[in-house]
């Protein structure tokens, strides 16, 4: 019933709006694409010849796991929450798959086990946030420790069994068609379409925004927030597990702390992409560009040849600067 492509009703309006501040607020993706372009030019200036189709492919490949994790944050932040457990869930999922490589059934069983574990983690988080009203920050941070601990226990159990990243995941995470188009898009495109459709075209997506904007109004209109929140955190955990599979394949590493360093960048990608951490506004389009921007910045810093510590300082500072600039530009006049 919704096959007809909906032309954004306000689409024509922004062309006529003189105030680009309003444009930034309503269409955050435009200045973000501009920033991405600038970063590519800078990369080319720093290392002439570096920007090529291969380089673009590598950027996309690197950005895919981050973009999926940032999708978790986007969904959670729209409700006024946050999901800090995505790192632990992603790491756990990739690790579990790796431990199943030499077991009977092989990696597909591992995939199923990992997904079930992720769903259980999301369910507990969702019940904590939705039913017991624990603040999502605390609940998901706590859950990340629980998941890490359990993954460590699993590591001890499976220590003799041996394992390794299955070649299928390596192919998915790091191979590309003609060295350019990464296969991980096979996972990412459906995930991205799903998230975009949920947010724009479904009643559930509307409720995510409604609860983030004004939980009282949502309740008075008959919405039961706990149902929405439990579903949200389960969905987020499943997405995190998928990101974990891709990341494991990309890095060829199975470790219980693999994705930990991606948690804050995932929040940053969503914030840079225009999703309000206070809830009620934002979307996945900006988030995807945000993830790409962070990946390019990270690659740019690597190509400058600074030591790791300097790169970390710069990376953190740039995230803060972009987020601050963005907030100023899009703030209400």
């Amino acid at each position: 019933m919704t096959e007809t492509v909906r032309t954004e009703r306000a689409g024509a309006r922004w062309l006529t709006v003189a105030a680009w501040r309003g444009l930034f607020r309503d269409r955050p993706i435009i200045p973000l694409l501009g920033l991405l372009g600038v970063l590519m030019v800078v990369s080319e200036l720093v290392r002439p010849g570096i920007v090529s189709t291969q380089w673009l492919g590598a950027m996309v490949r690197g950005a895919v796991p981050l973009a999926i994790l940032a999708g978790c944050q986007t969904l959670a932040m729209i409700t006024g929450g946050i999901d800090l457990s995505v790192g632990a869930v992603a790491s756990m999922s990739g690790f579990v798959v790796a431990t199943f490589v030499s077991s009977p059934g092989g990696w597909p069983v591992g995939l199923a086990v990992a997904l079930v574990a992720a769903i259980l983690a999301g369910l507990v988080t969702g019940i904590g946030v939705g039913v017991f009203r624990v603040h999502p920050l605390i609940m998901t941070l706590g859950m990340s420790f629980v998941v890490l601990g359990l993954a460590n226990v699993w590591q001890l159990v499976k220590v003799q069994a041996g394992g390794g990243v299955p070649p299928e995941l390596r192919w998915l995470g790091s191979a590309s068609v003609a060295e350019i188009v990464p296969y991980s898009l096979l996972v990412f495109v459906p995930v991205a379409v799903l998230i975009l459709l949920i947010l724009r075209r479904t009643g559930y997506g509307r409720l995510l925004y409604a609860i983030g904007d004004n939980p009282i109004a949502a309740r008075l209109s008959g919405a039961r927030a706990w149902q929405v929140l439990i579903t949200l955190y389960v969905l987020s955990a499943v997405l995190a597990a998928i990101a974990g599979f891709v990341l494991t394949g990309l890095t060829n590493v199975a470790s219980v702390t693999l994705a930990d360093s991606a948690v804050l960048p995932s929040v940053a990608a969503a914030v840079i992409g225009g999703t309000s951490i206070m809830g009620g506004r934002g979307g996945y389009g900006g988030t995807m560009v945000g993830a790409l921007i962070l990946t390019v910045i990270s690659s740019l810093l690597s190509s400058l040849g600074y030591p790791e510590a300097v790169r970390q300082v710069l990376f953190g500072a740039i995230i803060v600067a972009v987020a601050a600039a963005y907030t100023r530009v899009t703030a209400e006049a």
Binding site: M1, T202, G203, S221, A223, R224
Partner: peptide, 20 residues
Amino acid sequence: ENIALPYTARIRSWGPIDLR
């Protein structure tokens, strides 16, 4: 979205919205 809010509130209307 404000006007349509009650129509998406119930769990059975979580699916695709009939935008037209």
